[in-house]
Write a protein that binds this DNA or RNA. Structure first.
Lengths: 351, 351
DNA sequence: ATAATCTCCGTGTGCGGACACAAAGATACA
DNA sequence: TGTATCTTTGTGTCCGCACACGGAGATTAT
């Protein structure tokens, strides 16, 4: 079961390796008869080039650009970055390098500027967290014009299809969250609360919003009588949030279940710990360290993960496989909707 | 940021590439002074060889052997096999090939015989699903003697540590299962039932047993008053199982929650569908198609997955990384304990 | 002193494939 | 018929690394 090489193909077609090479790469300078013969043998033997030898010989360097929202260390996007770096290391023998840049998630202009800078670099591939469709389009148009493949991460812009997308199905994840929260609520399912964050920024087409829509869809279908309260927090000034939470729980002592669709569940979780309030079931998103701490200490009951590290890794991997290994790439790649509790979180990091 | 090559090291150390090569591979024929100098530069520049070029030049072929329990198509182990084949394809450019063989999971002798055949093949690496420690030891002793690295899949034999292990923490997974089943049970948590399968075979150190121990540990800690019934099914003759289930539910009409620690939840799930019995919460393991069908149709509420495909893939990957890419391998690799419901199963296949 | 042996080291070739270059044959034009 | 041009093809070199081979210089034996 020896691997077939170009040399073997050449011998069988009674031509030189150069000719086979020309056929494989679709270059000109091959007679119709030779091309036919070689192509037939290629297909018949299902020739698969050794991509490592190929990459070695072509001796190309690949520069990728990634554009993410600005963020603090320890926040969600840090995990995505970790995945990106991990992938670059994995593919380092292919001479890939990544240039990371950031945009202000509250300012469209910042996105435009950052994307302009990326275009000036003429990268071989781009991965980015898109903003809303109308502001994403100018960028993707330019990328298409320059024939630069690009990948969406976190949220998908269906109007401008990319090489591929890596992220979670937010709507379904919200739907699932409702299912689980209602399971938790049991008899207390008459009212729940959604904790929001004012000023969500322009990232994606609002993952949080879509989650909430999915959530409300489930509630409408299965618990239409359930009263859904809302509380907008700032996620900036702690004391202010604390006060708002105090007020809310005073006014609504019967609300025993709540959820937040952003990654800041720890704000409420830490509040519950501080106040030693143990009769409240909280659900949230993303495995930030502070969220995980709350989960382990019992103030968050469920966390839904969306595999940010894997998103970052797979995005870069897809660029490599597309450009270097010439593989087919799946267009839409939904991350699993993983449910974490105190009891299974331990085995979730090494994925 | 050019990648450092052997040539560069040679120039800096004022020796030839041959000498650098000798130092890297710890071969003889290098003076103390040259060796020192080269080693210093290697460390200083953190030289990382291009493993693809290396594999290409060494032109070695790798033969791996896998030993799994015999199984029908569509059962759990089919997924493991899919992961194995996927990995072989991924690493095909490194000239890896895999030889699969099987043993009768109800017969120790069969394991011994199959392992003997593997040893006769003198493979470069082995991955297998171990049986109980005392029957695994003769095999691992021989492998160690012949310096053949081996990997455990599915269950870990701590007495005879392998290069690495890929599987789930069964105990914790049972503990987690209890947590979730109790959540489901809610007010009905006074009694539950465990569905067993008589004659579990010799595979592993009995994953099912360990799951049950973890399960009972949680119950002891949190619901010591809960009555736990047991029902042994055959998983062979349908009619017999049906009758036993009929009898059980007639005798115990108040039992509303149950679990099985093997992958045959569909036996009960399909029974529930057939009898249109909708007031029973069933939990089980593994994403067999029949289980997934029950989940989607509502007769199984929760399924716990243990990523068999990933186990197979990662095991072969570990052998490749160890032997070819000379990377460090993590000894114990626990698969995540994933909880699946009707609402999130859809996004779970492409992991 | 010469041959034999040993230590240390550089060079050359090949792995499978990409690509530049040149050569051979075919065709066109003077 | 000779020359220019185009088409088609083969050969050689390089990518980074592994390894075989052989040579230079030092050391030991005769």
């Amino acid at each position: 079961m020896e691997r077939i090489r170009i040399k073997d193909i050449a011998k069988m077609a009674d031509v030189s390796v150069g000719t086979v090479d020309r056929v494989i790469h679709g270059r000109s300078g091959v007679s119709e008869s030779s091309r036919k013969r070689v192509e037939e043998i290629l297909k018949q033997l299902d020739y698969q080039p050794n991509m490592y030898a190929s990459a070695l010989a072509s001796n190309k360097k690949y520069a990728f650009a990634c554009l993410l929202p600005q963020h603090q260390k320890g926040e969600y996007w840090t995990e995505v970055e970790a995945g990106i770096h991990n992938a670059v290391e994995t593919y380092s023998d292919f001479n890939v390098a990544v240039q990371l840049s950031y945009y202000d998630p509250y300012d469209y202009h910042s996105f435009a500027e950052a994307s302009g800078q990326i275009l000036a670099l003429e990268p071989d591939g781009v991965m980015f967290a898109p903003t809303v469709p109308q502001y994403t389009k100018p960028f993707t148009d330019e990328l298409t014009l320059h024939n630069i493949p690009y990948i969406y991460i976190d949220s998908n812009i269906k109007e401008e299809p990319a090489l591929s997308f890596y992220g979670q199905n937010s709507h379904q994840s919200g739907y699932f969250a409702a299912r689980m929260l209602m399971l938790l609520a049991g008899e207390d399912a008459q009212e729940i609360v959604i904790f929001r964050k004012i000023n969500e920024g322009i990232v994606g087409s609002n993952q949080q919003e879509r989650r909430e829509i999915g959530f409300r869809e489930y509630m409408q279908e299965h618990h239409p009588a359930c009263r859904i309260w809302e509380l907008d927090l700032h996620a900036k000034r702690d004391s202010e949030d604390m006060q708002m939470l105090d007020e809310f729980f005073q006014e609504h002592p019967t609300v025993k279940n709540g959820i937040t669709f952003n990654s800041k569940a720890y704000i409420i979780g830490e509040y519950l710990l501080k106040k030693e309030k143990k009769d409240f079931n909280l659900m949230g998103y993303d495995l930030l360290q502070r969220n995980v701490d709350c989960l382990k200490q019992g103030s968050i009951f469920f966390l839904i993960a969306q595999q940010p590290t894997l998103q970052g890794f797979d995005g870069i991997k897809a660029l490599c496989e597309h450009l270097i290994l010439k593989k087919e790439i799946t267009r839409e790649n939904f991350m699993p909707i993983d449910l974490l509790t105190k009891e299974n979180i331990e085995f979730y990091y090494n994925k």
